[in-house]
């Protein structure tokens, strides 16, 4: 077992432990009923994530040299994403208005991501199938962030430009695999991937530290926290080697953030609609 594999296994075991703790706390939130319906979906989503990580850990220990032909852990990951989306739908209540711009962005950005995954892994059906829940959750998150005004129009525009640049640089790296351009794009990619993660972390923590929040702000903070979580997952998919391990560590740090945001959403956030 190499150093990278040991680091990866340690991080995954740490994730299992963190997810178990989050789930236990989330069950308490669900039972108390003070935070509305979202904790129920969050608990099941955390259970899915826990099962997914647990499956990955036992697979890597029991069959270290085998490659998964059909990734069962990805099914659990999809379950998590779908349950979170269902929870956001419940939170939105009767507000079923569609947001065409958010949908367009989610389809284009996640579509480009799926295309990159296919280029990197060569698995068409699997990547398309498991990419769709990411697309849907992203749409729900953008829609919620826009509606609640937790991210300004200028910030949204900048984030969209950064996402576009990220995809363009990844595409460039398919054709340019060495030399100065490759190094420059690599630096650019790390800056955008981790810079965006740092910005989202900062925004979420700032929102979480605010003492008095309106129901709308609570909902917006939740969407922000889930965006941090989703973004760190996407960053792990975009890297390999040591950078992947760093991204995995960042993702591990992001795990408790959605729970903290779920705790902030009070029952009144649902009763408004």
């Amino acid at each position: 077992m190499g150093t990278i594999a040991i680091v990866e296994s340690s991080l995954l075991i740490l994730q299992v432990l963190i997810e178990m703790m989050i789930m236990m706390r989330s069950v308490r939130l669900m039972k108390s009923g003070e935070n509305g319906v979202f904790p129920a979906f969050f608990t099941f989503a955390t259970l899915s994530l826990l099962l997914s990580t647990f499956y990955t850990v036992i697979f890597s220990f029991l069959r270290p040299d085998a490659r998964m032909p059909f990734a069962v852990d990805e099914i659990a990951e999809s379950a998590m994403l779908l349950l979170l989306s269902a929870g956001l739908e419940a939170l939105a209540g009767k507000d079923k208005k569609r947001d065409l711009r958010a949908a367009l962005f989610a389809v284009i950005f996640m579509g480009a991501n799926i295309a990159l995954w296919i280029v990197w892994s060569g698995e068409w059906v699997q990547d398309i199938l498991f990419g769709i829940p990411y697309m849907y959750l992203q749409y729900m998150l953008i829609k919620t962030m826009k509606r609640t005004g937790v991210v300004s129009g200028r910030e949204r525009a900048l984030a969209a430009i950064a996402c576009g640049a990220l995809i363009a640089m990844h595409v460039a790296q398919i054709y340019v695999t060495e030399g100065i351009i490759f190094t420059l794009t690599n630096v650019g990619l790390y800056l955008i991937e981790f810079g965006m993660a740092a910005w989202l972390f900062w925004k979420t923590i700032r929102a979480l530290r605010k003492k008095e929040q309106s129901p709308q702000e609570q909902e917006g903070t939740l969407a922000l926290a889930l965006t941090v979580f989703l973004w760190t997952i996407l960053v792990t998919f975009m890297n390999d080697g040591w950078v992947y391990e760093i991204a995995l560590a960042v993702h591990t740090i992001s795990l408790p953030i959605p729970y903290l945001a779920v705790k902030r959403v009070r029952r009144e956030a649902y009763d408004l609609r």
């Binding site: 979906f41 989503a45 499956y55 852990d73 099914i75 379950a79 779908l82 349950l83 989306s85 269902a86």
Partner: peptide, 14 residues
Amino acid sequence: TISGIIGALSLAMT
């Protein structure tokens, strides 16, 4: 909704 139903089914599968 479909997302919730598929989520519950995926949990059983995993």
